[in-house]
């Protein structure tokens, strides 16, 4: 729906207002990382300093959660890439009995609130006496990351001309050669985008994680604790910036990798 008519002024203002509402709050995170006031959220900051970055760097309690988050995100992303791509390959073209049920199964982990995924896993661990570990966190993260990879991959599969796979077979390539020389190069950017979104999603996830982590602390859980019981508030801001940038960059890259397609749109967390 496009027209050359000029938008009414009130609509323009409302749209810009909503856009600012979405973006301005984040900027405050950056500002408060430089404040000299460490006990309150006083605005405007009484003074500006860069010391908090050094303080955060030297805080020993930040590093283990950061490593754990990176490890969980990396493993979950790898698992989601494999499972999501397999699923997309099967679902992109074929029509079979139970297809709708499977696509429902894939989106369920993000369609239902995170607390249900979290509480379900928690119940399962309780019933089966599984102790909390990095593995229990990954189990949850990989589950809700599958749909992200799946959405990206399935959209690309559909956009690919179906006959290039046939052309490859026709020219003498077997299934594995076709995958390596034709499918993978054409799926590559979509998988990369899906992987990066999955990584961002996992790195930042807190709701499911609180149910599956036990005593372990990922970076978001560390942040949550600081939010509830603040110590050095600006340090939390520094970590927030790190989390923000670590998720923001992959998202932006994913957008550029899949431009022109519909992969990321409504990919929904």
């Amino acid at each position: 729906m496009h027209s050359d008519a000029r938008p009414p002024l009130t609509l323009t203002l409302a749209a810009i207002g909503a856009l600012l509402f979405l973006h301005l709050p984040i900027l405050l995170i950056f500002l408060y990382a430089f404040t000299t006031e460490e006990r309150t959220y006083q605005f405007p900051p009484p003074g500006l300093t860069t010391e908090w970055f050094a303080v955060a760097w030297n805080r020993a309690d930040i590093w283990p959660p950061l490593y754990l988050s990176l490890r969980v995100a990396a493993v979950s992303t790898a698992l989601a890439l494999i499972l999501g791509t397999l699923c997309a390959a099967a679902m992109a073209k074929a029509r079979f009995f139970g297809r709708d049920q499977i696509s429902l199964l894939i989106i369920l982990p993000i369609a239902l609130p995170g607390i249900i995924t979290g509480m379900s896993l928690r119940s399962a661990y309780a019933i089966m006496d599984i102790p909390f570990s990095t593995f229990t966190i990954i189990l949850g993260h990989a589950t809700f990351c599958i749909v992200i990879v799946f959405n990206n991959a399935v959209a690309r599969f559909r956009r690919l001309s179906g006959s290039i796979v046939e052309a490859s077979m026709d020219l003498g390539a077997n299934g594995f050669q076709t995958f390596r020389h034709v499918l993978l190069p054409n799926l590559g950017s979509a998988l990369l985008a899906g992987g990066m979104l999955a990584f961002a999603l996992s790195f930042d996830e807190v709701i499911v994680t609180t149910f599956t982590a036990g005593q372990q602390s990922t970076l978001p859980i560390w942040m949550l604790n600081e939010l509830v019981r603040p110590r050095q508030r600006p340090v939390t801001n520094v970590v927030a910036i790190v989390v923000f940038v670590t998720t923001f960059i992959p998202i932006l890259l994913a957008y550029y990798l899949t431009r022109g397609g519909s992969e990321t749109a409504g990919g929904g967390k």
Partner: peptide, 20 residues
């Protein structure tokens, strides 16, 4: 015999050239 082992080649309607 699967397609890859038939010494038969096809010119596809949409050409199906590998875009990459």
């Amino acid at each position: 015999t699967p397609p890859n082992r038939r010494n038969v080649n096809t010119v596809f309607q949409d050409y199906a050239l590998f875009p990459h």
